[in-house]
Every structure is written in structure tokens, then in C-alpha cells.
Design a protein around this nucleic acid. Structure first.
Lengths: 250, 250
DNA sequence: ATATTATTGAGTCAATTTGACACAATGTTA
DNA sequence: TAACATTGTGTCAAATTGACTCAATAATAT
């Protein structure tokens, strides 16, 4: 689909959803971003809400279009409602350069209030495919975010803050990691989200005392040091624990 | 202002804010509700967003109209976007009975997505005055909520859940209590929000170890037992602590 | 072959925190 | 002046935390 074929009459006007899609690779937390056609800015994968669609469903649909993933862990965290958040000069230039009809011009230049979601996905399972409205689609390290449009930088920061607060109430490690993983990976996720180093022996002791991990026989090998054990989550125990509230971990 | 004079052209269509206003009195957490004109339902004090107004400012404005309070602690917690949330038969009856013109009919019958805020106010400072669109305005115990319109019951529940999670990061006790208060009041707030009893000696020990409370000489008296000391918050210390993150308290 | 290197995972232990109590203190009421 | 209800302090064993040490081991260098 091309941009000029966008049928804005299908959508709720003035409202959008934006997804902060987190993945984890090379012991680094990453965010999936789309390249704007101006070749200068990047942006969060976002979209509009169909007139009879729930907001949650809209966020899922947008995510499916951008990553090909269904049934992803998705969490609404905040709504961004500053009247000037999407009215920088940038958008005027962008819209003009696209040579759209008046109706579409109006659509893109109106004030948008956006509902922010963060998604946790398994890095390896995502095949980043740019949608027809973008030039490219790529993962960025959380501490190397490029120039973004509008207030998208703030949205990412708030997603991280929200995740930090959810860390003790939501199964965050589970959704970012593959089926089996070394403990160090889980520790790195916690360290990145919390923004500080954790003591390895103490981390292991605490995370294992929760009883949510199952040690596998198989060892992860390939690096110039002792091979770590691989673990998997016991989802049953994990979800029960989260439901009850696990208290502050770190 | 009467309902028929509402100038809908001033507002963003399809969007609203709803405030869950919490107060604390008689060792009970309370919510401020408005009576619907059908004399059967109650509702949250909510309103619409002006076309060039930030969503946060809209929530503040609505709050001012309903409670007369300025500079209130207000926290956005979730956006409610189910397409059927405001389309129960009820609203059709309500709107018909109000004998409005077609434009207003359309306005009230459209799908609304609402942005939920919770407010923490000092009970004694609020003079509940029903706005011209409601019959009355009253405080309800959090566990004795009457029949509400739409999904407002769910909104209140989620506000409580959000507050529970914010309890360790936000100055919640401070905003609900008067300048001086006995420790038991603060404990009751924590107990209500957390939904469980706390051991008094242990609560006192922990809350005082934070160094955010100042013991006053004056005693609270009038009941048939030992008079408790009165305390006040040391705001400077409290805000610093919250900024750093105080960790899980209870 | 053997030593080196990097990293893992288990163990130790003192210091701190927690949870569950007991008990003295003290306004009000009987 | 005794009874009562509730407050504030004290105690102590158990559990948790933080800061460590050290042996184990897969790959690599010698």
C-alpha cells in the first residue's frame, strides 16, 4: 500500500498508537525503529485506530504489520497529549514533499494524541521488514537511539521507566529471551532496565530462589571460558508468582 | 451552564478524561462521585479536552470545576479504549430524556476513548459541589461504590491497582493527609491501598526509619485511649527520597 | 600437552532487615 | 479509681542482603 492510498475515513481522527518494541541481543536491550522518508529521522512503529477497533487491538495490529509477530507481550504505559507534540516544522516539510491531496494533508497536520505501548519480543524471531511507508527498519541499542521525530525519544524513555516499575510485577525476562538462555542474559536485562550493575552471585541466588527457573542439562558452549548452564522459565510457577506479587527484586 | 449550551466544537471529539478523586477520612479511603440525572447511576467526574489544550491540563481543569482545588496531585494511569465501553443502552435512554438537538445527540452517542487520572486530595479541603450537569456530588468508601455508568467501576479498580504500584515511587500519603496527622492514619492508607493489614510496630519502625516524618509536640486528643503523637512530612526529604527511588516498602 | 585466560557457579559470613511478639504508657469512660 | 482501648517502645530469632573468596572449566596460546 502506498501512502496516498491511505483511507483516513476508516480511522479515529487525532488519535494514534505508538509501539516501543524491545528486543534483547548480544547482552544489549534494543528498540526497533523505522526510517522516515526524509532520510534524517527515525520513528516508532505506530498507526491509527479503526473506528470500531479497541485500542489494544490496534496496537497488536500495528505490531503484526511491522514485525510479523502475533500474540506478543504488549503493555500500554502512557498517553501523550501535549498539543504541540506533533506540530514541529518537520512534519510540514515531510507532508509537503509527499504531494498528497488536501484531505491527507489535513490528516497528517492535525494534532495527534498518541497512546504508548511497549512490546517485548524475542529478537531472533523478528524479521524486521520496513512497511511500505518507511525506508527501512532496524534495531538500535537502547543507549544509541538516533534522531527521532516528534516526542518519540521521550516516549522511549518513558517506556523504559514504566518497564523499570513493572519489572517486579510483569514477566519481563520471559518475553525477551528465547526458550533457553544462560543466567547472564537475564542478569543483563535486569541491569539494562535498572541502569545499574548487579552482583552475579547475589543475582543468581535471588532469581533462583523464586523457583521460576529450570536448569537444563545442555550447556551453552562456544566462548573461551567455562560453559554456562542453560535455563528455561517454568511459566506455570512464574505466572502464579506474578499474580500474587513477587515484591521488589532488585 | 446547562447541558444544552455545551459547545462541542471547542473539544476534541471522541476523547475524554475521567478523574478518580481519592480522599481519606475516618481511616477510610474515599472516592468522589457525581450523581447521574437518571437518579440510578453515579459517575466519575470527567470532561472533554479543548482543541488546543494538553490532556494533563484538561484533567486539571475538570478537577478544578468539580472540587474547587488547584494544584492537586494528579497522575495519569491508563487509557480505556474498548469500542463498547460507552455504548450501553443506558446512554441512549439518558440522551433521549435530555431532549437535546441532533448535534449534541451525536456527540454523546459517539464512541469515547477516555484517559484515566487519579487525584489525591485532602478530604477536609474539598467542598463537594455538584456541577450543573449533575444532581449531586458525594464521597463513597472505596469498598462501597454504588452503581456506576459505563466502565467507571473498572476505571476505579485500575486506579487503585496503579496507585498500589506507585505506592513506593510517589508521595501518596503526603497528598491525602492534612498537614499534621497521627501515624495510624498513614498506616490505614497503606493498608487500604495494599489491601492487607500491617503490623503497627513494624510499620512505625519502617516509616520512621525513612526520615521523612517530623514528630510534633502537640498531641491529638479526644478519643478514649492514649493520645497519639502528631506527625508532619518533611517534604524536602520526602521528595529527595522519592526521586532516588525508595525501594519496596511493604 | 600444558599453561593461560576469562567467566561461571557455588560458598562464606558479618551486617542488616524482617516478622512476630510482649509490654508499659496514657487519655477517656464507667 | 479501676477498666478499657489504643499507642509507642522493646526484644529476639529468623531470614535476607551485600561484599567477598575460590574452585571449575571451555577455549586459546605456548
Amino acid at each position: 500500500m502506498e501512502l496516498k492510498d491511505l483511507d483516513t475515513s476508516l480511522f479515529i481522527s487525532g488519535l494514534s498508537v505508538d509501539n516501543v518494541i524491545f528486543g534483547f541481543h548480544d547482552n544489549q536491550l534494543k528498540v526497533l525503529l523505522l526510517a522516515c522518508k526524509d532520510r534524517k529521522h527515525w520513528m516508532l512503529p505506530g498507526g491509527y485506530i479503526l473506528k470500531d477497533e479497541s485500542v489494544d487491538a490496534a496496537a497488536q495490529r500495528v505490531l503484526l504489520d511491522r514485525t510479523g509477530l502475533k500474540k506478543v507481550y504488549l503493555q500500554q504505559f502512557s498517553t501523550f497529549g501535549d498539543p504541540r507534540r506533533s506540530r514541529e516544522n518537520l512534519i510540514k516539510g515531510l507532508v509537503k514533499s509527499m504531494e498528497l491531496d488536501d484531505e491527507l494533508d489535513q490528516w497528517f497536520l492535525q494534532r495527534f494524541i498518541t497512546i504508548g505501548y511497549y512490546a517485548l519480543v524475542e529478537f531472533e524471531k523478528v524479521a524486521p521488514i520496513p512497511d511500505p511507508l518507511s525506508l527501512s527498519c532496524a534495531w538500535f541499542d537502547i543507549d544509541k537511539i538516533p534522531l527521532l521525530i516528534f516526542d518519540h525519544k521521550i516516549i522511549i524513555q518513558e517506556a523504559l521507566t514504566a518497564m523499570k516499575q513493572h519489572l517486579n510485577y510483569q514477566p519481563i525476562g520471559l518475553n525477551l529471551l528465547p526458550a533457553t538462555f544462560p543466567l547472564k542474559s537475564l542478569q543483563s536485562i535486569y541491569e539494562t532496565i535498572l541502569g545499574r550493575k548487579l552482583d552475579r552471585p547475589n543475582f543468581n541466588r535471588k532469581i533462583q530462589s523464586l523457583g521460576i527457573l529450570e536448569k537444563k542439562e545442555k550447556l551453552f558452549t562456544g566462548a573461551a571460558h567455562k560453559a554456562p548452564f542453560l535455563y528455561s522459565f517454568n511459566k506455570k510457577v512464574y505466572y502464579r508468582l506474578l499474580k500474587e506479587g513477587i515484591g521488589e527484586l532488585f
